[in-house]
Every structure is written in structure tokens, then in C-alpha cells.
């Protein structure tokens, strides 16, 4: 099997999946608009309202982009929540409000994410440890190191860095633009490059990819590094938005499970090899619309959980039920 046939196979599959993101986006829009009209808050559909809605997608969207890569190669990353906390805390600790430290702090965080990604990827790809256990463990280790190191948060990011999270050129918040740009890059990598085609091949059929001469381990490793980088950018964004990181910011945001949920809702198969970033963006938009709509309706906090659980299941079931064969 040549690499070319693999990539063309992937394109066909990608085509068939196109409706899932669109369906999810339509659902999200429907829910949001209905909520706004039903509660008489039409101004939530204005530009400010919508940019507020998009703002809600940023943190989870950034994590989700990275998580998409991990899931596409048939792996998964549960350590993202702990990494987000670590990055956010590290960034505010290193900056201490000093603009001169912005670049070094960002670099340090990226290096940390790289290391975590390599470790995750190494445990999964080279050692063969199940990704759930491997990344659960690295997450525990990070969380522990973090709690041991940072018992209180005197640190804060530089005001100039914080401003980045609150700027809105042409009415669109800068973080939303960041998410859009990174999403385009991720889409380009997956859809238009050899590397992307190989990722799909590795996720869809690792044995076949191996026979075709691909170094499967390297792709799994790379996917984990990208997942960690996604979490890193999310952590930096949160640090900027919140002025300083707290060691529980990732855990309280449930970014690990929620990022997996949005990726799967967006049509990416947990078994790998199928899906893409467009679906992930649709998934995160659905979550954000739900959040905003629950707010408009004033849904009780516990009932929100119930509804969210039901919607996660329903959203995935809507198209999963068409699958042939068995799912576990």
C-alpha cells in the first residue's frame, strides 16, 4: 500500500463526515437563538452578545484542537487539565507582572508542554502503556508537583500580557482570533499536508501504516506533543484572562473530559483515523451555546449537569447509531 492511496482514502472519509460538524453547528445556533428569543434577550444575538458567546469557546477550543490530534491517532490525553494549571501558574510565577518576562515565560511554558508531550507520547507509543493510564498518571504527577510547589499565588502576569486577553480589534476578541488562526493552521496541517495524511493513516489502521513504511511511534509522539501544546496555549490564555493562574484552574474547568467530549461530539472517532478540527470547533460551540442558553433560561446548577449529560449522549448518538459494527 502506498502512502498516496492512504491519503486519498482519508479524503473520501473526510468528505462523508462533513455533515456532522454542520449539524452540530446548526444545533448550537438553534439552541442559542431559541434561548435568546424565548427569554426576550434579543440583544444576546447582537455583535457584543455573539462575541461574548465566542469568548466562551476559547479555552476549551484551544485544548480541543490539540486533543483532536491525540484522538485522531487513536490515543487520548487526560493530562491536559493538569498541564493547563501548571502552565497558567508557571506563566504568572515567571512574569511577576514584568513585561520583559513575557517572552521568556511563554518559551518556558512551551518547553514544559513539549516535555510533557514527549513523555506522554513516549509512554504511549514507545513503552506501549495504555494512553488513559499513561496520561492519567502524568496528570497526577504534574498536579502533585504543582501543589507541592505552589501553595499560594503571589504571581501575576504582566499587564501587557493580560491586555491581550481583553483586546477586541473590530469587535472580535483577540483570543477568538487566536483560536481561529490556530484552528486554520490545524485544519491545514491535517487536510493539506503529508504529515496530516499520515496521522489519519496511523490512526485509522496502525498495522497498515506500519506496513506502508510509516514510523507509527513518531506520529503518536507528535500527536501527543501537539495535544500538550494545545493545553499550553489554553493555559497561557487563561493566565492572561485571569491575571494569574491557580493550581486547580484546569481541574475545575474539567478540561480533560470536556475536551474529549467536544472532539467526539464533533464526529472524530475515538478509535482514531476519522474526523477533524472543524468538528471539534462545532463541538465547543455547542457547549458554549448550552452554557449561554442555560444562563438565559436561569437553569438551576444541578439541572444543568443533568441536561449536559443527556445532550452529550444524544449528540454523539445521533450519528454514531448509523455506524455498522460494534462499539465499546
Amino acid at each position: 500500500m502506498s502512502v498516496d492511496t492512504l491519503s486519498s482514502g482519508r479524503t473520501r472519509r473526510g468528505f462523508r463526515d462533513l455533515p456532522v460538524p454542520l449539524v452540530v453547528i446548526a444545533l448550537a445556533a438553534f439552541i442559542y437563538v431559541t434561548a435568546a428569543l424565548a427569554t426576550g434577550q434579543a440583544n444576546q444575538i447582537s455583535l457584543t452578545g455573539l462575541s461574548g458567546l465566542l469568548q466562551r469557546t476559547v479555552a476549551l477550543g484551544l485544548v480541543g484542537l490539540g486533543q483532536t490530534f491525540a484522538i485522531l491517532v487513536g490515543s487520548i490525553d487526560l493530562s491536559v487539565a493538569a498541564l493547563i494549571s501548571t502552565v497558567a501558574v508557571l506563566a504568572s510565577y515567571l512574569m511577576q507582572g514584568d513585561a520583559g518576562m513575557i517572552v521568556p515565560a511563554i518559551l518556558a511554558c512551551l518547553v514544559l508542554a513539549l516535555v510533557v508531550g514527549v513523555i506522554n507520547g513516549g509512554l504511549v507509543a514507545c513503552w506501549g502503556i495504555n494512553p488513559l493510564i499513561a496520561t492519567l498518571s502524568t496528570g497526577l504527577i504534574l498536579q502533585g508537583a504543582l501543589a507541592a510547589g505552589f501553595t499560594y499565588l503571589g504571581g501575576r502576569v504582566a499587564p501587557e500580557f493580560q491586555a491581550l486577553a481583553y483586546q477586541a480589534p473590530f469587535g472580535v476578541p483577540l483570543p477568538v482570533l487566536l483560536l481561529a488562526v490556530l484552528a486554520i493552521v490545524a485544519w491545514f496541517v491535517l487536510a493539506k499536508t503529508r504529515f496530516g495524511a499520515h496521522l489519519y493513516a496511523v490512526g485509522g489502521n496502525p498495522d497498515g501504516a506500519k506496513l506502508a513504511g510509516l514510523r507509527v511511534e513518531r506520529f503518536v509522539l507528535a500527536a501527543h506533543v501537539i495535544a500538550s501544546l494545545g493545553a499550553c496555549v489554553a493555559g497561557l490564555y487563561l493566565a492572561a484572562r485571569l491575571q494569574s493562574g491557580t493550581p486547580w484552574i484546569g481541574r475545575d474547568g474539567v478540561y480533560d473530559l470536556e475536551s474529549i467530549a467536544i472532539v467526539v461530539i464533533g464526529g472524530t472517532a475515538l478509535s482514531g483515523g476519522k474526523g477533524g478540527v472543524l468538528g471539534t470547533l462545532a463541538g465547543v460551540l455547542l457547549f458554549a451555546s448550552l452554557d449561554a442558553s442555560f444562563n438565559m433560561f436561569g437553569v438551576d446548577a444541578f439541572l444543568k449537569q443533568v441536561l449536559r449529560g443527556a445532550i452529550v449522549i444524544a449528540a454523539v448518538a445521533v450519528y454514531a447509531v448509523r455506524n455498522k459494527g460494534h462499539v465499546a
Binding site: 452578545g49 487563561l238 484572562r241 484552574i249 452554557d291
Partner: peptide
Amino acid sequence: GKDDKQISDIQS
């Protein structure tokens, strides 16, 4: 319990 959500909540 989410800082990020609370900021968005206040905004909205």
C-alpha cells in the same frame, strides 16, 4: 466553580 466562566457570566 470556573473562573473563566464567571468572567464570561459577568460580561453577559
